[in-house]
């Protein structure tokens, strides 16, 4: 569940109010394009590159990256989705959702994995994802692509590809959708 939905779900049940549109749909496309080029450059092509979108917000980012990568290189890298709910350190504080499917059908041994997510915040989701991915094999390398890095890291985790660095207050909420990136707060 993306953060906007989560804060609007009972028992919290607030309403997300956007204050500023940080990126519009075109900006997102350009950022994806640039990140795709960076992925190809850094890995000298797409050999053994696997994209893993984190449920649920990262799946869209992974799909957009895959599309851009296939236009650049002519081949589209294998893609998977991962739900980290059962690997979280705050398990029990968020629901495990049946619709957030883990689907990794490629062999991850020796692969270069690019984790894709919408927003990088405390880093705890990524910690859980690293943990979960290692149950699928021994990748050669794991890299991280995020649409927005909003700061406030609580773990030694840094992104390799960033759509937008966005300084935020800890109480603010960043919402990423195909229409754009919004910065807002939750009104009770």
């Amino acid at each position: 569940m993306v953060e906007k939905e989560r804060v609007q779900t009972p028992p919290k049940g607030g309403v997300f109010v956007a204050h500023a549109r940080v990126l519009d749909a075109e900006d997102i496309k350009r950022a994806i394009q640039r990140m795709a080029h960076e992925i190809v450059e850094r890995n000298h092509g797409l050999d053994n590159v696997v994209l893993i979108g984190l449920q649920t917000g990262g799946v869209m980012v992974a799909e957009m990256l895959t599309e851009a990568l296939s236009k650049i290189s002519g081949t589209s890298p294998p893609q998977g989705t991962l739900d980290v709910a059962l690997h979280r350190d705050d398990i029990g504080m968020r629901p495990v959702m049946p619709e957030a499917v883990t689907d990794i059908s490629v062999d991850l041994d020796g692969a270069t994995i690019v984790i894709a997510d919408d927003v990088l915040f405390t880093g705890r989701t990524i910690r859980a994802a690293l943990d979960a991915l290692c149950d699928f094999g021994r990748p050669k390398e794991i890299q991280l692509a995020v649409m927005v890095d909003r700061g406030h890291r609580e773990l030694p985790i840094r992104p390799d590809y960033v759509g937008k660095n966005l300084p935020t207050r800890i109480s603010e909420i960043v919402d990423v959708s195909p229409e754009g990136v919004d910065l807002g707060t939750v009104k009770k």
Partner: peptide
């Protein structure tokens, strides 16, 4: 087992999710 032990529906109300991602 997960629903009984791990889903922690009761926890959701007492823990603040603010600032978590």
């Amino acid at each position: 087992l997960f629903l009984l032990l791990g889903s922690g529906r009761n926890l959701v109300e007492v823990n603040d999710l603010e600032g978590e991602k």
